[in-house]
């Protein structure tokens, strides 16, 4: 019997659908380097879940734990109710995994690679062709070409096809769009959206903040910690400062001048503009305009904008660092 005051997690489970992935207090160290620091989260079935964070945030380590390749130092992780340590054999049958590095055989042709992965999962291309049709049909004209000779985008499509060919229940993609051109990246995400419709859980990591808005939910990661998990819209809503985009004819001088201002909270380049926030919540655009004019800036353009995920990320890391410094 469970006491009413401290219900066990299993007692809570029937209340809502079981999560596809459940991670509780996972930590992982490499020698003295902390890769994951007490991480917990849940991912629902059929969700497209993104891990966003810079290189070294711990995304790959986390994914390797979820794919049974690493054992966590502490904590419990289950995927489809299978423990990643104890039930690794069963789990490997239902996982589709695409590692960060391009990990197909360069000296095999497109078709041979796909065939190989189909065979080792005891299936055939024909049997599950419908799953990969949208993706694979794009590279099928090149099926006799060696994988090593494909372009970056085509390699990713092939890798995704290979990870999908055995109809996995959970698809784990480690930085699938890194090193891929903008058009292919867009296509890749459209494919993920389509795959999601077939009901599989998709977990993606990416260093590109702009891809976050394409996920159902995202977790922002840095230094082995998750500091926010939410829908992308909600994350941007958390941004409570006025954000201003500024441009002039001397961008470098502009950064220095703005940083020199007493009220400046943050300035960082973002595309053609600088994103600027002030310590005070209201920003007087005219005052700023005059200030820049005085400092010999021409063609000055100032506009208020909505924060995107990257702005939030920078804001949140800044806050987290501030907390650490105070502590």
């Amino acid at each position: 019997m469970h006491s009413d005051l401290t219900p066990s997690p299993s007692a809570l489970r029937p209340l809502r659908s079981t999560p596809s992935i459940k991670v509780e207090n996972i930590s992982k160290n490499y020698d003295k380097v902390v890769a994951l620091d007490n991480i917990s989260f849940e991912i629902n079935k059929g969700e497209l879940f993104g891990f966003i964070g810079p290189d070294g945030a711990g995304k790959t380590t986390l994914f390797r734990i979820l794919t049974t390749l690493l054992i966590p130092d502490k904590g419990i992780a289950t995927v489809e109710e299978l423990d990643v340590v104890k039930d690794y054999k069963k789990l490997r049958k239902i996982l589709g995994y695409m590692p960060g590095r391009f990990s197909l055989y360069q000296d095999l042709s497109v078709e041979e690679n796909l065939k190989f992965y189909a065979t080792i999962f005891n299936t055939t291309i024909e049997e599950n062709y419908h799953l990969i049709k949208d993706i694979y049909s794009q590279i099928e004209p090149f099926k006799k070409r060696r994988a090593g000779k494909l372009s970056g985008g085509m390699k990713q499509k092939l890798a995704l096809s290979c990870a999908m060919i055995h109809k996995p229940e959970v698809l784990i993609l480690d930085e699938p769009t890194t090193g891929v051109d903008a058009v292919s990246r867009k296509e890749f995400w459209e494919m993920l959206k389509k795959l999601k419709e077939s009901g599989i859980t998709i977990v993606v990591s990416t260093p590109y903040m702009d891809e976050a808005s394409l996920c159902d939910r995202v977790a922002l990661m840095q230094n082995g910690k998750i500091f926010s998990i939410d829908r992308p819209q909600n994350i941007t809503k958390q941004f409570n400062r006025t954000l201003i985009a500024i441009r002039s004819n001397q961008m470098y001088k502009l950064i220095n001048d703005l940083r020199g201002l007493e009220n400046t909270y943050s300035v960082y380049p973002f595309g053609d503009f600088l994103h600027y926030t002030s310590k005070e919540n209201k920003i007087n655009a005219n005052e700023l305009f005059e200030f820049l004019k005085k400092n010999e800036h021409k063609d000055v353009e100032i506009k208020e904008i909505e924060a995107n995920v990257e702005d939030c990320f920078i804001e949140l890391t800044k806050k987290a660092e501030g907390v650490q410094r105070r502590a």
Binding site: L69, K93, L95, Y97, F102, L104, Q106, I120, C162
Partner: peptide
């Protein structure tokens, strides 16, 4: 070295 072992390990082989 090429990382394909990772995928082989995460397979029923």
């Amino acid at each position: 070295e090429l990382g394909t072992m990772e995928v082989l390990l995460v397979s029923p082989l």
